[in-house]
């Protein structure tokens, strides 16, 4: 059964059609890639899924639940974590605190409970810290947990975003250009990380990425967007050899 289903998604910005009747179906525990030239509407699609934009038309269905009109925080609480193309960390918080904030949607302590340090809050806090430390180890930032987030190197910041998104215990993880700005060693490490996350935590991953090598290697299913339209989808071998894809995208790079 599909975890996430986008049906005829259309998005218009003041007459400009950024997405045009896009259908996408993502299966459980898949690594799904979305590619396409700049301005094809990939990030817009992410913003629609996570409730930042309200689509002009179409449906976003996540595990039988209609996400369209939900606030971003409610979408997050459904179990959808994401990273951002232009890194959005809490710069003046420590690396550890960044990940702890990530747990917000799946924890409960309220205003008075937090302030008075009630036992339930303290127990929860301990679990949050343990989980955060575990996630930081997973992405290889355990050593840096007390740094300010904006003191990290670029690649480290991207990994911190992944750890923060993971703190939400998501069943669906959206990665927006996770490899941007990384060197080739870092990219290999990133691929390992993505595999590891998927296999260990059994979740579904959708990623938007420009690095063809990475996408073709890691994704089991790929959709290609061009000018807001989906022009192809299927496994990497199929997409790679698709006439229209080569013409409008891959060909231009070769």
């Amino acid at each position: 059964m599909a975890v996430l289903q986008l049906e005829e998604i259309t998005m218009e910005f003041g007459g400009l059609r950024a997405l045009d009747l896009v259908d996408i179906k993502v299966e459980e525990q898949q690594i799904y890639g979305i590619i396409g030239p700049n301005g094809a509407g990939k990030t817009t699609l992410f913003n629609i899924i996570t409730g930042i934009y309200l689509p002009t038309g179409g449906k976003v269905i996540f595990k039988d639940c209609l996400l369209n009109k939900m606030h971003p925080w409610d979408v997050a609480r459904q179990g959808i974590g994401r990273t951002f193309q232009n890194i959005r960390l809490f710069n003046k918080l420590s690396v550890l605190d960044n990940v702890r904030v990530g747990s917000h949607g799946v924890s409960k302590s309220g205003f008075f409970g937090s302030m008075l340090g009630l036992p339930s809050s303290r127990r929860e806090e301990k679990m949050i810290v343990e989980k955060a430390e575990h996630l930081l180890e997973l992405v290889g930032l355990g050593e840096k947990k007390l740094e300010y987030a904006d003191n990290l190197a670029y690649g480290e910041q991207r990994r911190l975003e992944i750890a923060r998104a993971m703190a939400l215990n998501p069943s669906l993880l959206l990665l927006d250009e996770p490899a941007a700005g990384m060197n080739s060693t870092e990219k290999v490490e990133l691929m390992d990380l993505i595999w590891k996350i998927r296999n260990e935590m059994q979740l579904t991953i959708i990623l938007v990425e420009h690095d063809m090598n990475l996408v073709m290697n890691i994704c089991e299913q790929i959709a290609v967007l061009d000018y807001g339209r989906k022009i192809a989808d299927g496994p990497p071998e199929v997409v790679k050899n698709d006439e229209r894809v080569i013409q409008s995208y891959l060909g231009a790079e070769a």
């Binding site: 996570t50 930042i52 606030h71 971003p72 925080w73 997050a76 609480r77 974590g81 994401r82 951002f84 959005r88 960390l89 809490f90 710069n91 003046k92 918080l93 605190d97 702890r100 904030v101 990530g102 747990s103 917000h104 949607g105 799946v106 924890s107 302590s109 309220g110 205003f111 937090s114 302030m115 008075l116 340090g117 809050s121 929860e124 806090e125 949050i128 923060r164 998104a165 703190a167 939400l168």
Partner: peptide, 25 residues
């Protein structure tokens, strides 16, 4: 106590980056 708790961290997160804070629930 408040500022070092879940709610306090959420306050700081809103200051630092509201969109990312919302994406964290």
């Amino acid at each position: 106590k408040l500022l070092s708790s879940r709610i306090g961290r959420a306050f700081y997160a809103i200051r630092e980056n509201e969109i990312a804070a919302e994406a964290s629930g």
